[in-house]
């Protein structure tokens, strides 16, 4: 099964919309609730990152019996130092975004903790590509 969602940079009113849809679909497919929670946490953080940092992006969700693969691709500033960005507490979020309670530098580590495989590729000035894999077989 395959689903695609668009994300607009800067638009926090719709942040979490794709995560909410994916949660509903996984529930309908009777995926284990603990696994659903992990996927949703990781996806939400990815979604918020696109809204907070990029101009636009899209989410591709591919569901197979043995795994859920989520691809998040954005057009945006990219990440100069991915290792540094992965450090808990490190953030480049704007003061406005921080005031909302985002930008605590916990997003990427939440994504890592809540996925079985996380791949981040980025080109400064162009954008970022994230692959989140969660295995469904116990």
């Amino acid at each position: 099964m395959h689903f695609t969602y668009l994300i607009t940079g800067g638009n926090f009113t719709h942040a979490g919309h794709a995560s909410s849809q994916v949660k509903r679909i996984l529930k309908q497919l009777n995926v284990n609730p603990v696994t659903i929670k992990r996927i949703v946490v990781a996806l939400y953080e990815a979604e918020v990152n696109v809204v907070a940092h990029a101009y636009r992006g899209n989410i591709d969700v591919d569901i197979e019996p043995e795994r859920v693969l989520v691809l998040i691709t954005d057009e945006g500033p990219g990440i100069a130092d991915i290792e540094l960005a992965m450090k808990e507490g490190y953030s480049t979020a704007s003061p406005k975004v921080r005031e909302m309670g985002f930008g605590a530098g916990m997003g990427l580590s939440n994504m890592k903790k809540n996925s079985d495989k996380l791949i981040i590729q980025s080109q400064v000035g162009q954008g970022t590509h994230v692959e989140l894999t969660t295995f469904l077989t116990q």
């Binding site: 929670k37 946490v41 939400y44 953080e45 309670g101 605590a104 916990m106 939440n110």
Partner: peptide, 12 residues
């Protein structure tokens, strides 16, 4: 008040 903290650590 940190949304990612709640996302990562709050329970159902």
């Amino acid at each position: 008040d940190l949304l990612s903290d709640v996302m990562g650590n709050a329970e159902e």
